[in-house]
Simulated scan of single mutants.
Amino acid sequence: MTLERRLLWIYASEKLRDAVRTLTLHPGALRARLRACAEPLGMVPSHALPPSLATRNAAIWRVLTRRLDAEGRPSVGLSLRGLRETTLVRLAEAIYRLDAETAKLAELAELADAGESRRRVRAVTREKERPPLQR
């Protein structure tokens, strides 16, 4: 994974974590918590996520911005106002699952990178341990 890709991934993971933290800790009813978590969720760059997660992120964002305000701009508040409680719960679950899946993939990527680093270190170490005539 390139450094730029890794930084984008870290940024996206942090924003998703912020959204879930807001969803969990923000005072008020579920509708108010979803409205509050929309800000960090909206800052997640879709191109930083793998395609399957980017699709899920886009689907969540479509629900959050389905309705337009008087000026024709997407409105999270208006969109949430039109949803039933069961839909709000499913939306919150989808945000939580997206964060959990992103965290799992980030951990796997770190392990893969760590494994690659260990392989490189072992290869270099083996090379240095060989007698000069065998190199």
Rank of each mutant, 00 (worst) to 15 (best):
K15T: 12
L8T: 05
A109W: 05
R5F: 10
R118A: 15
L49H: 03
L78H: 01
A12Y: 05
R66N: 09
R62H: 10
T24G: 06
E101D: 14
C37R: 03
L68E: 10
S13L: 15
R81Q: 13
W9Q: 13
R97Y: 09
M43P: 00
P27A: 03
P40S: 12
R5H: 10
L16A: 08
D99G: 07
D113K: 06
L91A: 05
E107G: 13
P51R: 09
A19R: 03
T2K: 06
R33Y: 05
T102F: 06
E4V: 14
D18P: 01
L25N: 07
E85T: 09
P51F: 07
P51T: 12
E116A: 15
A58Y: 04
A48S: 11
D18S: 12
L25F: 11
L23P: 00
L105S: 08
E93A: 14
A92L: 04
L133A: 15
R35Q: 13
L25D: 08
E129P: 01
A103S: 13
T102Y: 05
A59W: 02
P132F: 12
E4H: 09
W61C: 07
L91Y: 02
R118L: 15
V121A: 09
E4Y: 07
A38G: 07
A36Y: 05
P50Q: 12
R62T: 11
L34T: 04
D113R: 11
V89Y: 01
R73V: 05
L133V: 14
W61H: 08
V121P: 00
A70Q: 05
R119M: 02
R120P: 01
P74R: 04
S46P: 15
S75M: 05
T125M: 06
T102G: 09
N57L: 15
L7E: 11
V121Y: 00
R35S: 13
